[in-house]
């Protein structure tokens, strides 16, 4: 359509009149303040977006050409070693640092940075992640007992299909997720997510015992094998509420 034809259609008044002024940013009337709970949800959503934005870099880095990847792997090995040294010095007054076996999965002694570590072999799916994690927590010791537990797991799963991460790597990852060098997870499942190798890291958001009216709030991260203190490689970050009946099981 030509400009002349466009112009010919012009001239009628808007049927909206002043009635649409509530949509005008300059003329809109004052409204109520945003409730704190709404802001908290928005902040969480924006945090997810930020994590996803940073995660895009991670996905790209996984698709680097092989030669670059080898150089990167060597560099990562050096940095992992450096992280290990840092963790060891930080942990020296707390739980002993786990000494890994040749495959990095078999510790000789000590505690891990989680109260329970599993290798369920589950392939967690995006649409069912929350219910799968709920089932996982219910099916093990239960959230209530796990929260009450004062000791960390001392046994590493004999086989960890799919997710290849050393105990030191897991410690570094959890400290990155929790922003705490001594951070401890409620539960970790070395598994898969949507077909990819992944770790499911579950951390309680409150220390109080769940009740009927106040469920246990659990923060769940799905992390990739590159997760470390400096780069958490988060695939999914969500919060789930576990009812007292479920968490007490």
């Amino acid at each position: 359509m030509s400009d002349a034809e466009d112009d010919a259609m012009w001239g009628e008044e808007s049927p909206l009149g002043d009635e649409a002024s509530f949509l005008n940013p300059e003329r809109a009337p004052q409204g109520p303040s945003m409730p704190d709970a709404v802001w908290a949800d928005i902040e969480r959503v924006l945090h997810h977006e930020q994590v996803a934005r940073e995660g895009t870099v991670s996905l790209h880095s996984r698709r680097r050409p092989r030669r670059t990847w080898i150089i990167g792997a060597a560099a990562a090995g050096v940095s992992l070693l450096a992280v290990g040294v840092v963790v060891q010095s930080v942990q020296s007054t707390n739980a002993p640092v786990v000494a890994s076996g040749t495959n990095g999965l078999t510790p000789s002694s000590g505690a891990f940075p989680a109260k329970q570590i599993l290798a369920s072999g589950t392939d967690y799916m995006p649409t069912t992640l929350a219910s799968q994690v709920t089932k996982l927590v219910r099916g093990s010791k239960g959230a209530k007992q796990l929260m009450a537990a004062t000791t960390e797991a001392t046994a590493w799963p004999s086989t960890a299909p799919g997710f290849d991460m050393s105990a030191e790597g897991l410690r570094s990852c959890i400290s990155g997720l929790t922003h705490d060098d001594n951070g401890t997870a409620l539960m970790v499942d070395l598994a898969r997510y949507h077909g990819d190798d992944a770790g499911i890291v579950v951390i309680p958001m409150s220390v109080t015992e769940p009740t009927q009216s106040s469920p246990a709030m659990l923060r769940v991260w799905v992390v990739g094998p590159d997760c470390s203190a400096s780069h958490t490689d988060v695939m999914v970050d969500l919060t789930i509420a576990l009812p007292a009946t479920a968490s007490a099981e």
Binding site: F22, L23, A28, P29, G31, S33, W39, I42
Partner: peptide, 16 residues
């Protein structure tokens, strides 16, 4: 940025 304008954005969403 969003925090700075949260009340205004909330008001328009609520009205609409």
């Amino acid at each position: 940025l969003v925090f700075r304008h949260r009340d205004r954005l909330w008001a328009v969403a609520l009205r609409t």
